[in-house]
Write a protein that binds this DNA or RNA. Structure first.
Lengths: 106, 106
DNA sequence: CGGATACTTGGCGAGTTGGCTAAATAGCCA
DNA sequence: TGGCTATTTAGCCAACTCGCCAAGTATCCG
């Protein structure tokens, strides 16, 4: 057994994995504009509430969001606002690839 | 059918998904210090070369790295240097969660 | 040419993900 | 209490991921 990867990469990958889904990315983007309850997010995502609830649980376990029960509703909000910084770079990567594809045209 | 998620989230999620694996994160981190050939990365990752090659192909398709064959070797390098900005925020999320867990101790 | 080295591709198996429906849980109000 | 609404949990299944080994391709060199 040569080298075990530093556990730092495992932990970082776990956070990225939590973000690596269109619905979860949408949710994070939406929460960057303020807290939302599960039913609001459910309407916007366009999936079953149980599915959205699972996505939120996953984001919570990854340490990206936190929740807060008020009456019969549960409100979620971002725990680490800088999460949105991701988007800038992800967009840069995408535009880069788009440009490449255009150039290739072979 | 209520709302289809903007395709922007799908594309962004694809990039994050490519990064969301410990070995690939390690590779990207390593490439941020300069180009490397597959055999160098293989030694460092500690997996079969075929496995590392597959990770590199995946990163290439995501538009994160590009390659360059020189003789019998293939060198990979980052296509979008800002990819490393991710790490700062991912680390912040992780420290945030670590703190939470410490506080909870219930 | 044949052989060695560097890499990629194909295929398989174990494990994970993500969606759904149905059932359970919790809070509010009559 | 019962009924209604909001949410989570459980269970199922199809699809995907990731590792390995084996086989294929490409380049260099003798």
């Amino acid at each position: 057994m040569p080298h075990p990867l530093p556990s730092r990469f495992k932990a970082q990958a776990a956070v990225l994995k939590a973000l690596a889904h269109p619905s979860r990315l949408f949710i994070v983007d939406e929460l960057s504009r303020g807290e939302r309850c599960v039913c609001e997010l459910t309407d916007m995502v366009g999936a079953e509430m149980s599915t959205v609830s699972k996505h939120l649980t996953l984001l919570k376990h990854a340490g990206i969001v936190e929740d807060d029960k008020r009456g019969v509703q549960v409100f979620y909000r971002l725990k680490t606002p800088c999460v949105m910084n991701f988007f800038q770079c992800v967009t840069a990567v995408r535009q880069n690839s788009a440009k490449e594809e255009e150039l290739q045209t072979r």
